[in-house]
């Protein structure tokens, strides 16, 4: 017990993934359900729902951690050039 404690201090703060998840939920704009005030939160992360753009919000902030190469997308040249089938037009 004692050994572990001193080891922890030399390693700095511990990282708690539950706390991390809570912070992420806040960052992503969790809507906590208001009408359940009287109910004790079970485990913390159980209630509420995330907005539709939650993961986009996180992605936008996290982008700068990545040095991802942009990729090139095109339509022309992605299939064989083929003339359309002849049209029989009655007029």
């Amino acid at each position: 017990g004692k050994e572990k404690a001193s080891q922890l201090i030399s390693e700095g703060s511990a990282f708690d993934s539950t706390v991390f998840a809570e912070h992420l939920l806040s960052f992503m704009g969790l809507n906590r359900l208001e009408d359940e005030d009287d109910e004790p939160p079970n485990g913390g992360a159980g209630d509420g729902y995330l907005p539709k753009d939650a993961w986009h919000r996180l992605a936008r902030r996290a982008e700068c951690c990545f040095r991802t190469a942009p990729s090139f997308h095109y339509m022309m040249g992605s299939f064989y050039a083929e003339p359309p089938p002849p049209k029989q037009r009655l007029e």
Binding site: L24, W55, H56, R57, L58, A59, R60, A62, E63, C65, F66, T68
Partner: peptide, 10 residues
């Protein structure tokens, strides 16, 4: 934005 970037960050 690409939401997968958020997932990868986590």
């Amino acid at each position: 934005s690409n939401p997968k970037t958020g997932l990868l960050f986590v």
